[in-house]
């Protein structure tokens, strides 16, 4: 069901949506997730798991629509 990063933490309601992109960027740069989360002020484990365990699937779904729109243009 989780196609895209949730806006808020499921448990406490803290805003986490705007932290995802920075988190991914810094994680890919090789930084330790613990440090990134501490840095972003996510102190409770409910909010930390939101980012730690999230898998962004929407990008994979969008690939199909991207292909479809290409074919549509071609056929036109």
């Amino acid at each position: 069901m989780l196609m895209i990063i949730p806006i808020r933490c499921f448990t406490c309601g803290k805003l986490i949506g705007d932290k995802w992109e920075e988190y991914v960027k810094r994680k890919e740069a090789g930084e330790d997730p613990k440090r990134i989360l501490d840095d972003m002020g996510l102190t409770r484990y409910c909010c930390r798991r939101m980012l730690l365990s999230h898998v962004e699937i929407i990008d994979e779904v969008l690939e199909f629509y991207k292909e479809a729109s290409k074919r549509k243009i071609k056929s036109e």
Binding site: I4, I7, G17, D18, W20, E21, D59, L62, K66
Partner: peptide
């Protein structure tokens, strides 16, 4: 805050 991602 990302709301949704759009394909072309």
């Amino acid at each position: 805050i990302p709301i949704v991602k759009l394909a072309p």
